[in-house]
């Protein structure tokens, strides 16, 4: 681990014990996040992208979930070994999270003011007066006009986009070093999505926050991130700088995903590339590559042997028996 990394995840495994057997939701996931960097995590539902980040913050409900192995080091602190009280001091202060649905993180019975003030009173030791002033400042920062009046509203009095902004204000009110945003704009309309992404970009450049952005939208990844991790069936399938990943993917799954997004420059009527089949049942993975069944270039070895994590160059890795060939195509 270099000194420049704020977060280092190594060999993380999170399993869920279900009636269908053990689900390896996150299976040997490793990555680094540099200070000031934005890392995108892309994947379809069930790929383990959210569980990875919930594990990093020790937010896995146990049972049924269990972090069975690996290391998570945040700024030199071994998070998985920490007593839960200590983890709580980090959460919300040094590491903040925002989710797809703001109503899961806002209490519908409490005024916005109360919920925003609570954070800084707890973590920064603000007095009531200081906390209120700070909360108003934060709301203005995320573009809520008349913050002074509206701060005493209840969450239901705000629209979806406004609630998402309140949640961002709350997440950023202690100037966290790391922001984990899990599908922060998925439930929003495009014009509101553009506003929210712009706010995250601005705050990132003014506060120097490191960001993990979890999304299924490759357009959002292209515009927001420096590096990308592609997840599939609980595993990291590819990892590369954003520009390189889009220009020269080294994994057939990534390649398929990129091709299956309609390109606005393309004329209507051309058939869209489609990845055949369905995402695998993570509780019953085949012995070989979990993508082999849907992969166009799969050979016998792909069905029988788990693929290696091939180094294309120092920054670019791909989980594929034929990574170098795919990269070269």
């Amino acid at each position: 681990m270099t000194n420049n990394a704020i977060l280092n995840v190594e060999g993380l495994r999170t399993y869920f014990h279900t009636t269908d057997g053990v689900v390896n939701a996150v299976d040997d996931v490793s990555f680094e996040l540099m200070r000031g960097e934005t890392l995108g995590i892309v994947g379809e539902s069930g790929s383990g992208k959210s569980v990875t980040n919930l594990s990093v913050m020790r937010l896995i409900q146990s049972p049924p979930g269990e972090i069975v192995g690996g290391n998570v080091v945040f700024d030199g602190i071994d998070v998985l070994a920490l007593p839960i009280d200590e983890v709580r001091k980090i959460r919300g202060k040094r590491v903040a999270m925002i989710f797809q649905d703001p109503m899961t993180s806002l209490n519908p019975f409490l005024k916005i003011s109360k919920q925003l003030m609570e954070v800084t009173q707890l973590h920064l030791g603000h007095t009531k007066q200081q906390a209120r002033e700070h909360a108003i400042k934060m709301l203005e920062l995320v573009g809520i006009s008349d913050a002074e009046q509206r701060i005493d509203s209840y969450p239901h009095e705000f629209s979806g986009g406004m609630r998402q902004r309140v949640m961002i204000a709350m997440a950023l009110s202690c100037e966290p070093e790391l922001l984990i945003a899990d599908e922060p704009t998925t439930a929003l309309d495009v014009t509101i999505q553009a506003q929210v992404l712009e706010i995250i970009k601005d705050l990132k450049s003014s506060m120097g926050t490191s960001v993990i952005l979890i999304t299924h939208d490759l357009g959002v990844v292209a515009g927001m991130t420096d590096r990308v991790i592609v997840m599939y069936a609980g595993k990291v399938f590819e990892q590369a700088p954003t520009k390189e990943l889009f220009a020269r993917p080294a994994n057939p799954y990534t390649k398929g995903l990129l091709k299956s997004v309609p390109d606005p420059a393309h004329e209507q009527g051309t058939e869209l590339y489609q990845i055949p089949g369905l995402p695998p049942d993570v509780a019953n993975l085949p012995p070989g590559c979990p993508f082999a069944e849907r992969c166009e270039r799969a050979e016998i070895i792909c069905h029988n042997e788990f693929p290696p994590f091939v180094e294309i160059n120092a920054d670019h890795h791909s989980l594929c028996h034929f990574a170098k060939e795919v990269y070269g195509e």
Binding site: V190, T191, D217, G219, V221, A222, G223, F246, L258
Partner: peptide, 18 residues
Amino acid sequence: AVPVPDPEIEAIRERIIL
């Protein structure tokens, strides 16, 4: 407002923010 899945385009694009 629609994000384009191409980092080269996204890097230079001016967006109208409503």
